[in-house]
């Protein structure tokens, strides 16, 4: 029974990281695309736009990191 639970945890780790990477990937790409648009319209604000883009991407990344943590926990602590 223990081994069945461990097998399920490992499959769960894979699914968790897979689906967890969907949202951040699309979201960060969206941020960067809009930043490209903005920076070409207003190149004088390049540093401001780049900074905002990086901060927004970092926040958007957080859910990806949550799923990484959960996946690592499922692999190593079950």
């Amino acid at each position: 029974m223990d081994q069945l639970a461990r097998a399920a945890a490992l499959l769960g780790a894979g699914i968790c990281m897979g689906i967890g990477a969907l949202g951040p990937g699309v979201g960060e790409g969206f941020v960067a695309g809009k930043a490209c648009e903005g920076i070409s319209r207003a190149p004088e604000h390049a540093s401001l736009i780049t900074r905002t883009m990086l901060v927004g991407q970092a926040v958007s990344e957080s859910t990806g990191i949550y799923s990484l943590v959960i996946a690592l926990l499922l692999i190593f602590s079950t």
């Binding site: 780790a13 894979g14 897979g18 969907l22």
Partner: peptide, 24 residues
């Protein structure tokens, strides 16, 4: 199950970044 999990992780995990980078 670990092998199946590995396949699903990289399979589903690349959908988001692929769409995102393409958008950029």
């Amino acid at each position: 199950f670990a092998y199946l999990g590995a396949g699903l992780a990289i399979g589903i995990g690349t959908i988001g970044p692929g769409i995102g980078i393409g958008n950029v």
